[in-house]
């Protein structure tokens, strides 16, 4: 009974703390909390009009290429991209990881990392972003980020983007990330 009470108290404190960052819309689930999320402002191309983007890029014969054809190649040529950043905190004694991200602002949402070697930037898709027990991982420019590929709409400063993160432990975290200038 007493343990339950302590748990309850801790839970309330966490909720209270999370509430402090309400303007940043940090969200918490289980042991994982997210703070200071933001998304880089970006403009999509020609209102998703494939022929527009392709028309500028290629000769006429490419204009008839249907979007489905592009997707089958796994390559959304001419599409706009952006990235989301945040601090993911693990308050539990068990290591966890972000294994998936979703958002309806982009056709494809992936976890990426940037490695810098001899001032050469290399971006790579990663399967998971590890969050150590009682630790945190910072998703920031030049490092881990949630990559938004094929934007469905312009991301303008002041707007909010809803991102759903899935943890290895099976939790879903909803993050409301404000859009900031690039």
């Amino acid at each position: 009974m007493r343990r339950l009470f302590v748990l309850f108290a801790v839970a309330m404190m966490v909720v209270g703390l999370a509430g402090c960052g309400a303007s940043q819309s940090g969200t918490q689930t289980g042991g994982i909390t997210v703070r200071d999320p933001w998304v880089r402002a970006a403009m999509m191309n020609m209102a998703g009009d494939q022929s527009g983007a392709m028309g500028n890029m290629q000769q006429g014969n490419m204009q008839s290429t249907p979007m489905a054809g592009m997707q089958s190649h796994g390559n959304m040529a001419g599409s706009a991209v952006s990235a989301a950043y945040m601090v993911v905190v693990n308050n539990s004694n068990t290591a966890d990881a972000i294994i998936k991200a979703d958002s309806d602002v982009a056709q494809s949402v992936e976890l990426h990392n940037v490695i810098m070697e001899n001032n050469v930037m290399q971006m790579r898709q990663v399967e998971a972003i590890e969050v150590p027990a009682n630790g945190q991982v910072e998703l920031k420019p030049g490092s881990y980020h949630v990559m938004l590929i094929g934007l469905n709409r312009d991301l303008k400063e002041g707007e909010e983007v809803l991102i759903k993160l899935t943890t290895r432990s099976g939790k879903t975290i909803e993050v409301k990330a404000p859009v900031r200038k690039p």
Partner: peptide, 22 residues
Amino acid sequence: VTVIRRDLPGSGLGYTIDHSGY
């Protein structure tokens, strides 16, 4: 400038470009 095209299998990007940041 180093420019290396890298395929990203399974990624919506298709490929990325490793490049110098100067």
